[in-house]
Amino acid sequence: MFEARLIQGSLLKKLVDAIKELCTEVNWDISNSGINMQSMDGSHVCLVAFNLRADGFDHFRCDRPLTLGINLGNLAKILKCSGSNDIITMKADDNGDTLTLMFESEKQDRITDVDLKLMSIESEHLGIPDQDYSAETSMPSSEYQRIVRDLSSIGDTVNISATKEGIKFSAMGDIGTANITLRQTSSADKEEENVKIEMKEPVLLTFALRYLNNFAKATPLSSTVQVFLTKDLPVQVNYNIQDLGYVKYYLAPKIEE
């Protein structure tokens, strides 16, 4: 038996909206420590992982580890039936073939319950090695969203470089070129509005903007985002979900043949 109650149910809705376009059919691994998912996108170019800690829920019970095969598009449709202030409870039996979702309004005067059919999904789990990052940048998630969106109107790929000057995003296309450089800041009113750059070595990597743009769908989950760049390795884009967990995206760099 699995049962989890989330007071801030809108986080679940935002999480599913943040990943559903990259991954359609995924396995959620449930254990007494929480809910984990890892999935590649359809083209196997990026990897999406999330963790929701058991202690981030108002109530969490999992008698034995379960794998729930979920069509995220269908789950998103169901979550559309929830109100933005609803409390969401998820339930599944150990050998059941459905996930029950219950939406309670704030005043608990309206209750919706929906059964989502589960599916059997074959998925490959990838091991992510501990990486020694060349550069780690923390910035407002709205800033990241704006950079990748703005550069998408210039080109399809972006060069991201970290140097002493800061972190530079460059795109080139038929209409011209664009560079956006972010420098470290410390003057913002709120700590999370600052840009923090920790560089161990200069690094330059090339990525498809389409995916980086897709990662920005997690913007409503967190006010900040961390971008980890490592020489010749995938970029990692992290959104921490306050008091609950995280969603992480990894994208393979483009490589000169």
Partner: peptide
């Protein structure tokens, strides 16, 4: 145009 490798080139199956 640089090539786009798959993510499994960097992360191995567990």
């Amino acid at each position: 145009e640089p090539a786009q490798p798959k993510i499994s080139k960097f992360f191995s199956p567990r």
